[in-house]
């Protein structure tokens, strides 16, 4: 047997060991998640809210956009559980549909920042000459106050849910990219990646199989937080007049609409406010749980 063949053989067995180790780790991870109280609470909250959002057309008692001049700013009652807004629209129905829009915005921003963050972060850490250029650009984006960037983009692109998603994606991608880059840099130096390189695995294979596989955990944690932050950011954009356009409800634009009547009709802003708080809290608890489990320093403490 030639020395070369031996090397390849060793590489194979090394890889085999690694995959099974990963599988074991994944199993352990799932078990730990099921065990973690704050993750469980957060996940349950999110599941319920998602269910409400998905079932909106069947749950909502009224058409969320139906104006009713006779029933403007009515307090909570058996007819309108959450009261009505300045157009006489049922707040409960609007909150249910608004949840749909807000969760969709949050989820899409989380996914898109995840994708772009991964591409940019990996590129920066893997392709040395790109690192400086990419990181300076991302630093520039980060130095740009997020809200202002969002307003400017919203003015440029016109109002739509898509605009909100794009603006928030641009705002949060740099942070995600940094997280990925940091994780990849750590992994890159590790022995098994060196080993994979040594046995001649292709760049694509190394990136997808070994590096990204290991950057995935911090990335998921980051995405959970981006999801949460985006829901709040949507509300702030609505406050500044660049949120999802009327008449479609989002949690943020219902609150923004209701802020003028905080004293006269508290229900307009308070009910969607509670739902936002619950959603964001749920996501944060989930993220905390994930991070606790992933971060080995915290693992022992529990």
């Amino acid at each position: 047997m030639s020395a070369e063949a031996l090397d390849i053989d060793q590489g194979k067995s090394l890889r085999g060991e690694m995959t099974s180790a990963r599988r074991r780790r994944t199993l352990k991870f799932v078990r730990e998640l099921a065990d973690h109280p704050s993750f469980l609470i957060g996940a349950t909250i999110l599941a319920i809210l998602t269910l409400i959002a998905v079932l909106a057309p069947w749950i909502a008692p009224y058409d969320p956009n139906k104006n009713n001049y006779r029933d403007v700013l009515m307090g909570p009652s058996s007819q309108f559980w959450f009261g009505t807004d300045g157009y006489g629209r049922d707040i409960l129905s609007r909150v249910i549909y608004g949840l749909r829009v807000s969760l969709m915005i949050g989820l899409l921003v989380a996914i898109l920042t995840g994708i772009f963050g991964t591409i940019l972060g990996t590129a920066a850490s893997y392709v040395r000459w790109l690192d400086g250029l990419l990181m300076r650009t991302l630093d520039g984006l980060m130095a740009f106050p997020g809200v202002l960037l969002a307003i400017a983009l919203a003015s440029a692109l016109g109002p739509s849910e898509m605009t909100v998603i794009i603006a928030l994606t641009v705002t949060y991608t740099p942070r995600t990219a940094r997280v990925v880059r940091a994780a990849v840099l750590v992994v890159q130096g590790m022995q098994y990646v060196e080993a994979a390189k040594a046995v001649g695995a292709g760049h694509g294979r190394i990136i997808f199989r070994y590096i990204l596989g290991n950057a995935l955990s911090p990335l998921i944690v980051q995405m959970t937080f981006v999801f949460a932050v985006s829901i709040i950011a949507e509300a702030i954009m609505s406050f500044l007049g660049v949120g999802p356009p009327p008449p479609a409800p989002s949690l943020g634009n219902i609150i923004a609409d209701g802020r003028t009547y905080i004293q006269e009709a508290w229900w307009v802003a308070v009910f969607p406010g509670i739902v936002i708080a619950v959603a964001v809290l749920g996501l944060n608890l989930m993220g905390d749980g994930l991070r606790d489990i992933i971060d080995p320093r915290h693992r022992s403490e529990r």
Binding site: I232, I255, I262, I276
Partner: peptide, 22 residues
């Protein structure tokens, strides 16, 4: 304490500000 810390992150600031004003 951790839930208290999170609540601040979970409420839109403009709304909280107006409530404080009132």
């Amino acid at each position: 304490s951790m839930v208290a810390a999170l609540i601040g992150l979970s409420i839109p600031d403009f709304w909280f500000g107006l409530v404080l004003i009132i």
